[in-house]
C-alpha cells in the first residue's frame, strides 16, 4: 500500500509540478508587485480601423468590431451611447480597449500586451467555464483538474509521512500546529 501511494504521489507531483511552479511564481509576483513594475504593460499600442457596413444592433456591432481586428478574449464593460460604443476585451497577457465612433464608423484600439510574467499573472487570475473563448474554458478545466491533483499530492504526502517512523514526531507537531493555526484563523476572519 505504501509503495502504491508513494507512486501516486510521484505521479501527481510530477504531473502537476509545472503548473504549481507557474502558480507559485505568479503568486510571488502578485505579492511583490513592486519588484515587477517593469512587467506590466502600461503604454498601449494604438491602432484604428474603419467598419464598412456596421450593424445597428449593439451586440452585433461589438461582435463585428471584435471580428475585424481578431480581438479574442472575454468581453467587458460594453457602454453604448448615440455617438459611441466602448468596451474592452481581455485574455491572459493582453487587453484591448476599443472606442468606436458611430458617426465616422471608426474604431480606435488601445492594445496592451505583456510578456511571460504578465501572462502568467493573468493566467493565474483566469478560471471558470464562463468565458467567451474556448481556450479560456479549456484552461478552466485544467485549473479544476490541477486543483484536484493538488489535493491528491497533499493527501498522499501526509499518508506517506505518517507511515514513516522517522519524521513522525517533528512532522506531527508541524502538522497539528498549522492545522490549529489555520483552522482558527479561517473561522475567526470569517465570523469577526
Amino acid at each position: 500500500m505504501y509503495a502504491k501511494i508513494r507512486d501516486l504521489h510521484l505521479f501527481f507531483g510530477l504531473l502537476g509540478s509545472a503548473f504549481l511552479l507557474i502558480y507559485a511564481l505568479s503568486a510571488f509576483m502578485m505579492g511583490h508587485s513592486f519588484l515587477f513594475k517593469w512587467a506590466y504593460p502600461n503604454k498601449p499600442k494604438m491602432s484604428s480601423f474603419k467598419l464598412e457596413a456596421p450593424p445597428s444592433d449593439p451586440k452585433a456591432l461589438v461582435a463585428a468590431l471584435r471580428a475585424q481586428d481578431n480581438l479574442r478574449g472575454d468581453l467587458f464593460e460594453v457602454k453604448t451611447t448615440s455617438t459611441a460604443v466602448s468596451f474592452f476585451v481581455e485574455r491572459p497577457g493582453s487587453r484591448f480597449d476599443v472606442a468606436y465612433d458611430v458617426m465616422s464608423h471608426t474604431a480606435t484600439v488601445a492594445a496592451r500586451q505583456g510578456g511571460f510574467w504578465y501572462s502568467i499573472d493573468r493566467m493565474h487570475h483566469t478560471g471558470g467555464l464562463i468565458h467567451d473563448e474556448d481556450s479560456l474554458n479549456a484552461w478552466g478545466v485544467l485549473v479544476a483538474i490541477m486543483s484536484v491533483i493538488t489535493w491528491l499530492i497533499g493527501l498522499t504526502g501526509v499518508y506517506m509521512w505518517f507511515k514513516r517512523q522517522k519524521e513522525r514526531r517533528v512532522g506531527g507537531m508541524i502538522f497539528v500546529a498549522t492545522f490549529v493555526f489555520t483552522g482558527i484563523l479561517l473561522v475567526l476572519v470569517r465570523v469577526m
Partner: peptide
C-alpha cells in the same frame, strides 16, 4: 509539505470554487 498542507487544501478549494463560480 506538512507545513503547507493546509494552504494546499485551501488553494485547491479556491481553484474548484472558481471553476464553478
Amino acid at each position: 509539505g506538512l507545513m503547507t498542507f493546509w494552504a494546499l487544501m485551501v488553494f485547491g478549494a479556491a481553484g474548484m470554487y472558481v471553476t464553478f463560480r
